[in-house]
Design a protein around this nucleic acid. Structure first.
Length: 462
RNA sequence: GGUGAGGUGGCAGAGCGGCUAUGCGUUCGCCUGCAAAGCGAAUCUAUAGGGGUUCAAAUCCCUUCCUCACCUCCA
């Protein structure tokens, strides 16, 4: 598998053995939005793809639970900052469990790794990369000659373009805080004084602790390239003298009307809100509908388009599981093989989810075509269903399952309706159909039998 | 101002030197007792503008215009 690496600006081969991935997670000061969801979905599918294809993946995704924004929020609400972060971590798991995101191997929090952070800062000071100043401990950017290699920036340009007022307590305008002195909570004792960690140091400390040196993939949103990931590199590599990661994978922004979601524009769509309206499958398909490296524009129209595709997927699934009988399988065998191979090779070449989902939909269409021509059989299903489910699983999609009880009662109702239909008592037959559809069950009338599917209840579809 | 990524049919979106995807939409059909669901056919010949290179360019080079992102916190 190859993935485009931001650092080398080339596609790099993902090592075939065990894979360590670090994904920069969210700062927990507010609800997660659809932009977070896209990055997290991309990495969730990446991980599913690697794991189902035999790789062992150690996936670490952090929570930044100490930060100025959390403190500000706590102040306005008049509660402790850690209550804010706890609340939004809880919300994070509620939302992302609903989105069918597999939990990371480890979800480390900054506040639980203060001693590792302090140790790392110590070594940076000892080796001359960091210095003590009036307001805290700072990283000396000029000491790290490769600074700017990830974001392709020259330090001179950065200074020239700096928009922030120069902080007189720093040796250099580009230096950034590793430790910020603070007398108020949250704060921790340190060899230099009470305070809290700077933003970037936690990721260096935690990735080193859980994944070690030179791990395989480090990811996050594009907007983290500078300064966050650039600074992580400076911190970690100054100490380890080794590359932080082999591949840097960055996910494009989710925009609305072409502009990035932001607090100031007030165009944030929370995961929760979109989930309530569209459900996880449609959101996942939407987030996979463009190449991960590019921006995608959020719109109801695009969500709608993916809803239509999702309905086709549901239909194909139920056509298969409700099938009976035996018959020819040459066509489906070839089609399935072709789609599977297109699916895998698409994901293998820079994680092209557009082509991969295309291959999946091609299989879906093929299955529905066979069903429409009244030639679906159990033999066909036996061949196509495992591959269909493989793709479904890699993409993290979930069709509605039915209980035996539901199956029984629906089958009974269908039989009653069938009897009425043969007696041409259509009004009563339709009444039964309405009764069934009230439970989100859709009847699919075929020439010789009626099958049914349980469709996902999606608010936007009602 | 600096840096980076882009501009492809009504919309979304691959392809990144030759075979001009794909999906949605739209129109018309098929199926049905009527629906629903699904299927089929037709439609759409597109690659920001201008120069090159080449037998051949959406794909390479130059240039102009435009968009977005980053340079402050940001997934």
């Amino acid at each position: 598998m190859k993935i485009y690496d931001t650092l080398s600006t080339k596609e790099q081969e993902v090592p075939p053995d065990d894979i360590r991935i670090y994904l920069c997670g969210v700062t927990v000061y507010d609800e997660s939005h659809i932009g977070h969801a896209r990055t997290i979905i991309i990495f969730d599918v990446l991980r599913r793809f690697l794991e189902t294809n035999g790789h062992k993946v150690n996936f670490v995704q952090n929570f930044t639970d100490v930060d100025d924004k959390i403190i500000n929020r706590a102040n306005t609400e008049g509660i402790h900052p850690l209550e804010i972060s706890k609340r939004y971590i809880d919300h994070y798991f509620e939302d992302f469990d609903r989105l069918n995101i597999r939990r990371a191997t480890t979800h480390p929090k900054a506040t639980e790794h203060i001693s590792e952070i302090i140790e790392l800062i110590k070594s940076l000071i000892d080796s001359g990369y960091a210095y003590l100043s009036l307001n805290g401990v700072y990283y000396s950017v000029s000491k790290f000659s490769e600074y700017g290699k990830l974001s392709k920036r020259r330090t001179e340009d950065l200074i020239a373009g700096a928009r922030i007022a120069v902080d007189e307590t720093k040796n250099d305008a580009l230096d950034f805080a590793l430790w910020k002195f603070s007398e108020t909570e949250p704060n921790w004792p340190s060899p230099w004084g009470k305070g809290r960690p700077g933003w970037h140091i936690e990721c260096s400390a935690m990735s080193l602790k859980y994944l070690g040196k030179e791990f395989e993939i480090h990811g996050g949103g594009r907007d983290l390239i500078f300064p966050h990931h650039e600074n992580e590199i400076a911190q970690t590599e100054a100490v380890t003298k080794k590359p932080l990661a082999k591949i840097w994978m960055h996910v494009g922004m989710v925009t609305i009307n072409g502009e990035k979601m932001s607090k100031s524009l007030g165009n944030i769509k929370s995961v929760r809100h979109v989930l309530d309206n569209w459900g996880s499958n449609v959101i996942r398909l939407f987030c996979l509908s463009g190449h991960y490296s590019k921006a995608i524009d959020y719109s109801e129209d695009l969500l709608k388009e993916n809803l239509i595709k999702w309905r086709q997927v549901e239909t194909a699934y139920y056509e298969m599981i409700m099938s009976e009988g035996t018959g020819q399988t040459d066509e489906i065998t070839n089609m399935t093989l072709e789609c599977r191979s297109e699916f895998d090779s698409a994901l293998g070449s820079d994680f092209n989810t557009v082509l991969a989902t295309n291959a999946f939909f091609k299989l879906v269409k093929g299955i529905n075509r066979i069903a429409a021509s009244e030639s679906m059989t159990k033999s066909i299903s036996d061949i196509a269903l495992p591959e269909f489910e493989y793709m479904l699983d890699v993409l993290g999609l979930q069709v509605q399952k039915v209980t035996e009880q539901e199956k029984q009662s629906i089958t009974n109702l269908i039989q009653q309706r069938e009897t009425l239909r043969t007696q041409k008592q259509y009004r009563d037959a339709d009444r039964i159909r309405d009764q069934i559809s009230a439970q989100n069950i859709v009847l699919l009338d075929h020439k010789n039998k009626t099958i049914w599917m349980k469709k996902e209840n999606i608010a936007a579809d009602n």
